[in-house]
Design a binder for these strands. Structure first.
Lengths: 196, 196
DNA sequence: CCTACCGATCGGTAGG
DNA sequence: CCTACCGATCGGTAGG
């Protein structure tokens, strides 16, 4: 089939995601990934050029997923008040994590094992992503909807709390993704709203 | 000197903490730790029984540090309203991280590389620690100081946000530990307080 | 996708 | 704390 090669590549990335999520990148060997696919370690190199290359594909795809989700959330709430815009960003982030926790957790935790230039490129994208949260916080402070705070610190506080989900979320856990998204959007908004 | 042996052991743990913080436990070799102390890899084994043993000492000490800090914070605010008790717990946690970010970051990120029984023991202590936060949240909901929320989810949200500090805190950063503690205590409290 | 193999490095031990 | 060394495993290549 014409789609075999790309789907095989994707199967490798999925198996690697699961293992990187569970044990971390350095503790996962090329042979571990191959074993999950019932092939030999050396056979992986017919589809990938290096172990780091697999990590990069996963991290890059995860970054794009978060960026697209945030784009959609921002577009849908562009004319709404800051609290709603923040709530939409939080929901989009939580839903992206819940949709593929292994992908998200590799993105959140394993990027530091990338080569220096790829690491730098991811750090820049992360900062731009965090900037979306900072901008909404600044806007909310300007309208008086949000109390006065350090926007950078508040954005880091909230995003770190959200990212923790990638570590502990289980599809069959006590709370559904929707309920977690509801709660987290509420908690994040409360974190900033002016008390009155 | 009589204190040489224990201080040497501690020097090993400190060098290991710095490396585990920077690269993670699996990506740090015994020879890396030895090199930081200007000795040979094999010489380390005069002071430690295994690499995992070093990780355990660090994680166990970090856990005790957090527990003692929380004990002191709880004792000092036992008769105060829930918001103040929460604020004290948050400050204690942030200050413990800032006092030794490498120790804290190994505790937060590397415990999963411990053996099964040690991992279990740390997970239990973490849950008990998180329970202190849950209890204050429940108490605040009971008095009406805090709005209605899922105490477990809120505790996880806040503690995850705080733990992120271990990853990015730098003593020479833009904000002092005191200012971060102030802000984080404020953000955590706002996250829960009923709007009025 | 396989077998066979490479040099490098791993955590750890023996024996001073 | 050292030298010398162990078996196991690492990421990756050659050549089908």
């Amino acid at each position: 089939m014409a789609i075999e090669a790309p789907s095989r590549r994707r199967a490798i990335e999925d198996a690697a995601s699961a293992l990187f999520h569970e044990r971390g990148y350095p503790a996962t060997s090329v042979r571990d990934i191959a074993r999950a696919l019932d092939i030999r370690g050396a056979s992986l190199y017919a589809h990938v050029t290096s172990k780091e290359d697999v990590l990069w594909s996963i991290v890059d795809r995860a970054a794009s997923t978060f960026e697209r989700a945030a784009d959609a959330a921002a577009a849908a709430t562009a004319q709404r008040p800051p609290a709603e815009r923040l709530s939409a960003l939080v929901r989009a982030h939580v839903e992206a994590i819940a949709a593929d926790p292994e992908l998200a957790s590799v993105f959140v935790s394993e990027w530091r094992h990338l080569s220096a230039d790829r690491k730098m490129s991811i750090l820049e994208r992360r900062d731009a992503y965090e900037g979306r949260f900072r901008e909404v916080i600044v806007a909310g402070m300007a309208t008086g909807d949000f109390g006065s705070t350090d926007p950078g610190l508040a954005a880091t506080f909230i995003l770190t709390a959200l990212n923790g989900l990638a570590t502990w979320y289980r599809p069959d856990g006590r709370l559904t993704a929707q309920r977690i998204a509801d709660h987290y959007a509420d908690l994040a908004t409360r974190t900033l709203e002016e008390h009155r």
